[in-house]
Amino acid sequence: TPPGRKRRDSIQSYKMDANPCGHCLIINNVDFEPLSELSNRTGSNIDCDKLERRFKALNFIVDVKTNLKYKQIRHELSALSKKDHSQYDCCVVIMLSHGTEVSHNRFPGAVHGVDGPAVPVQLITNYLNGRHCPSLQGKPKLFFIQACGGGERDTGFEVSPDESRPSIGGTDDQTDAIPMSSSSDSLSMSDETDARATLPTPSDILVSYSTFPGYVSWRDTQSGSWYVETLDRILEENAATDDLATMLMMVNHEVSQNSAKGVYKQMPGSFNFLRKHLYFQPQPQ
């Protein structure tokens, strides 16, 4: 235990020593139905395996669901919210799928079911908020989303349009981009009223996006996505000593430094409504 590390719930950090720590639901959408007009996400199983191992090592009860349709995603989230989390300290939801742009001032974007329709991230987080899941009230609820928004490729600044063709990236690089959806239902079922913000503020929720909705997220068919690969490695190397926000800063930095064969840029997004530091409890291997 590093000096100064608080194991118990305190002003500074969340209590995270329940054994096991909590549930971790991974939704891994790989094979999309032809009618969805979305391509299969080759390489996603690699991401899924990495994160399953990682969150087991962080003492979570990991449940993997593969190829869920829109309604099944909502069903799984609803089932997770109806579980009794009283004896746990945390809850994690990981979504690996195609994504699309949906505007929202806290949690923008949406994640596609294998049948096509997309579940807004705001709705995904709402399933676990204090109102819908009282046994997680005051406990950190973490969402990791490997997906992307509209079809915009963020090429950085120095690249001319002529050079920024995906063919430069090589055949192994696929993107999670899909055509823009126009759906933009704003759902507000948040937790608490913040003294400063005039809209109710979600509390104890953190969403980490592989990229801001609206930009491409890179996935290699052989090695998985940059974001998951980096997240997995940073968690492996630093979870024993650093808090989650610090580690996400490292992830964001590394992913943004990377670029698909030197052309495309990707910047992950962290939308953090946690009230305290969060230290995981890695299990001795």
Binding site: N105, D194, R196, A245, M267, G269, N272
Partner: peptide, 23 residues
């Protein structure tokens, strides 16, 4: 308070938003 705002993103960029969100 509103890290998802598209005006904020366009004017300041995701790196700035992250730096505030993870501070």
């Amino acid at each position: 308070h509103y890290p998802g705002c598209s005006f904020l993103l366009a004017e300041k960029g995701q790196e700035y938003i992250n730096s505030i969100q993870l501070q």
